[in-house]
Design a protein around this nucleic acid. Sequence first.
DNA 1: GTCGTTTGTTACTCATCGGTACAAAAACAT
DNA 2: ATGTTTTTGTACCGATGAGTAACAAACGAC
Lengths: 201, 201
Amino acid sequence: MVTNNDKPTRGRPRTMNEEAVLDVAVSAYQRTDPADVSVNAICQMAGISKPSLYRAFGNEDGLTLAALDRYAETVLADLFAILQTNQPVDPMMEALIDFAVENPRLETGCLFYKMRAGKHRLGPKTRARVDDIDAAAVQAFEAYLEGQEAAGNWHSAQPRPLVARYLMEQIGLALTQRATVEDTAQIRAALSLALSVIRDA
Amino acid sequence: MVTNNDKPTRGRPRTMNEEAVLDVAVSAYQRTDPADVSVNAICQMAGISKPSLYRAFGNEDGLTLAALDRYAETVLADLFAILQTNQPVDPMMEALIDFAVENPRLETGCLFYKMRAGKHRLGPKTRARVDDIDAAAVQAFEAYLEGQEAAGNWHSAQPRPLVARYLMEQIGLALTQRATVEDTAQIRAALSLALSVIRDA
DNA sequence: GTCGTTTGTTACTCATCGGTACAAAAACAT
DNA sequence: ATGTTTTTGTACCGATGAGTAACAAACGAC
């Protein structure tokens, strides 16, 4: 449903740019909250009519799903890339803190965590994708920790799944605060304190 | 606006019980999310008509404010009571963990933290009250820490306001998770890990 | 040019939202 | 009984939500 890649040779040429619409949607969803941005508002901001949008994305669930996928391709991919560097724990925690606190694309919070926080307001497809991304992220954290343990660089008294989930939630807390707290130094200090239990373990 | 305590001797006797309506509102707000419960739904659940509710509370902002106040009187008062016991840090952290994880009245999350998370959706009076309660809670945490430091029971390398805010946010994270995560043992383990940085300090 | 096909927009549907006008109902005072 | 006062519920308001029917516009095919 999301996108029709067939290029029909006949018919009126399309003026609507799905990518541009998605950019508008992602930006609007991330700036405030997905639940506070209506389809009407997105159409207005993108300069298109509602039927055009519905022809491209099916329904609101399709639009939010496409926006989440686009967001995952850009911002979330950076997080997975950091985790795959397999640095030792100390620099990795620093890298994660820098990512969460300094990345200008997360200035108004993270769309994924915002969607997860209001999961019950999403359509079924988007909700399922949120769960998928959440599981994949925890899995990425766990794989990193497993690698560090296998290399003998680190060992934790806590079970590995717990630590992976803990990292997910602490980063989510910091990203949630970026939407409301202006002082990034405060967010950094709190996240640094929370992640220190991993370093010291 | 909230309540008219005058008891007029004349006129039709009132059948509406403001306390009962508030109980319904608090329960509904806390069960899902304040933003997902309409005034219509509360009237239906409480068995009253809309004009009755609006005469008692003015508007939706007045209703949510009254619900938050009522909630603060009951559940949040328990938290402040715990903080005023002035126990040493170790048992205090245990008490806070027990409060957040085991209290059956927080089974579907905490209304205060839910309102704070969706603060931009609230009316001005309720939003201001959320800020007041937030400041008062941080202040209570800070006063406790100051007392422990003065008694020589504890000292932290981190600035006291940071630690107070950290405690607030970690407890909020645990309470937020209680709304979605079923396994309380997992929440307890994560919160315990987060608060261990305070104990060890 | 004419036809079929695809995309575009205008203008609508129905549901729900917060909020209110208004008159019936139920009490006391006389 | 007849006002007077206060509370009640019905039935509405305008705004906004997601979603759609229907038609106009713009192309290739012929």
